[in-house]
Simulated scan of single mutants.
Amino acid sequence: MGHAHIGWRVIEIVDLKKNYRKVQALKGISLRVGSGELFAYLGPNGAGKTTTIRILTGLTRPSGGQAYVGGHDVGKEPIKAKRHQGLVPQHVNLDAELTVEENLFIHGRLHGMGRVDIGRRIEELLDYVGLKEKRTSLVKRLSGGMKRRLMIARALLHRPAVLFLDEPTVGLDPAIRRRVWTLIKKIQRDGVTIFLTTHYIEEAEFLADRVAFIDEGAIVALDTPRHLMDALGQWAIDCYRGNEMETRYFTDRESARRYAEERMNGYTLRRVNLEDAFLACTGKKVS
């Protein structure tokens, strides 16, 4: 794929704050994302995920703190910081009346790329995202999954070192979502650092090297998915009492099974997942 090499700290956020009138959308968050890492930012709607991406990509100014991308202060050197990044926003913002190829070509020109380079890159990327046979199709004729893949191709056109994905699979059915996951993993293997926001827990569990839980504008946990889950245990028992469900965690399957058998009411024995860890940290579900 080829991109600029910019040391191990590709993204750095220090005490970042954002206020909208009386609402504190971000309450002084700090984090670092290393080169080649796939970092997931997980939380319910309204937690502050999109606000963080908007600040990192220069679309919103913070109320306090610093944000760096590729070693450049996003507030002071927005153009230099932008050169290193590609963005796939939450909402489809392709030009529906243009073809797949035309959408990509315009993006390349906006990034100051030459025609020959754009042509080569379009060829490469349409193959990469599996849209080669759609190059002359109008965007309005594409399915939801194809539009998402085209947006990812567009974000990669100028060879960014870091890719911001804001809820990249929202509204897609599970089979199509898995196709997009495979593509995201492929992009990471090619050396691109990925910053992903999602409220699909299994997306973060499947894709991320590390995950931050954000809730009400604050980071409540930050670690690998495995560590966050292991802190609770390996196995979970969901016990049903009338309309209530209680979950208990165990380090081994045998003790979980013994506990369940003593209870006799309806129960489910299952593996601990990342949603359990999120609930334990925040007391709420991601939705």
Rank of each mutant, 00 (worst) to 15 (best):
M1P: 01
H3G: 05
A4Y: 09
A4G: 11
I6C: 04
I6R: 15
G7I: 02
W8M: 13
W8C: 03
V10H: 07
I11F: 01
V14N: 14
D15Y: 00
K17A: 06
K18Q: 04
V23T: 15
L26F: 09
K27P: 06
K27S: 12
K27G: 12
I29E: 01
G34Y: 09
G36Q: 11
E37T: 03
E37L: 08
L38H: 13
G43M: 06
N45R: 15
A47V: 01
G48T: 10
G48C: 11
K49N: 14
T51D: 08
T52K: 15
I53D: 02
I53Y: 02
G58T: 10
S63V: 06
G64C: 10
Y68A: 00
V69D: 02
H72K: 05
G75I: 02
G75H: 08
P78H: 06
I79Y: 13
I79K: 00
I79Q: 09
A81D: 01
R83E: 12
H84N: 12
L87N: 06
V88Y: 09
H91C: 00
L94G: 03
T99W: 03
F105Y: 12
I106Y: 15
H107S: 14
G108I: 06
R109H: 05
R109K: 15
L110M: 15
H111A: 06
G114K: 05
G119I: 00
R121P: 11
R121H: 00
E123I: 00
E124M: 02
L126E: 12
K132P: 01
S137K: 10
S137Y: 09
V139W: 07
L142N: 11
G145I: 08
G145H: 03
G145T: 03
K147W: 05
R149C: 04
A155S: 15
L156N: 02
P160M: 06
L163D: 04
L165R: 06
D166Y: 10
D166T: 08
E167A: 04
G171N: 13
P174D: 13
R178V: 10
W181G: 08
T182Y: 01
T182R: 09
K185R: 14
I187P: 13
Q188Y: 02
Q188P: 00
G191S: 10
T193C: 07
F195D: 14
H199P: 04
H199V: 01
E202M: 05
E203Q: 12
E203I: 04
A204W: 09
A204D: 09
E205N: 14
F206C: 00
F206N: 11
F206P: 00
R210K: 14
R210L: 15
V211E: 06
A212L: 13
A212H: 04
A212N: 04
I214W: 00
E216G: 03
A218Y: 03
A218E: 11
A218F: 01
I219M: 04
D223L: 07
T224N: 04
T224C: 10
H227K: 15
H227I: 07
L228Y: 07
G233P: 11
A236S: 12
A236R: 13
I237Q: 03
C239P: 00
G242Q: 14
E246V: 14
Y249G: 13
E254S: 14
S255G: 01
S255V: 03
R257P: 03
E261N: 10
E262K: 13
G266E: 13
Y267T: 09
Y267G: 04
V272A: 13
D276P: 03
C281Y: 14
S287C: 05
